[in-house]
Amino acid sequence: MTTNAKDVRKTWEKIADYFRAHSIWMKWYCTGCGAIEMPPTMTSRFDMERLGMGPMATPRQADVLLITGYLSAKTLRRVIYSYEQMQDPKYVVGFGSCTLNGGIYFDSYATMTRLDHYLPVDLYIAGCMPRPEAIMNSFDTLIKMIEKGEAKGWKHYQENHEWYRRNQLHSLKEVYVKDEFHE
């Protein structure tokens, strides 16, 4: 792998990446059944707070968008909105085989088959469902990736925004959030 000027981090970025790696605030986009694996990960048994991770209330405050489970065309619009509200640097973690390749409902008219077509996914957690052990393990990987400066999905999204936009529009026609309850 060649290193070009863009990949070299300045000293302050290395320090900042240390802080970013050890304080991971997450926005859980709990659409599917995967949400049920988060409470044991958070509470006494697996205790994610010891790695500096924690849930956050709004996308503005969060660093990681954790998508647990199926995305339908309708929720994907909301996810893209949420992702674009987050502040740089931001990371996306796809959770479960449903975000990876569509899982068991790969042929449904309503569900996405691959998330990285629409958002820059830094890390996938395979499994249906991934156990809390798998979640902790993958977040350990994410921490190492951020520390080394390898988790650059947000930069990829900025640089290839046209491509992502095209995919989003192809599948969703229009990325908008408008329903009768918000009129």
Binding site: L100, G102, T113, H117, S171
Partner: peptide, 11 residues
């Protein structure tokens, strides 16, 4: 399935 293949590209 045809709709899904056309709209949502598979891995």
């Amino acid at each position: 399935e045809a709709y899904s293949r056309e709209k949502f590209p598979e891995r």
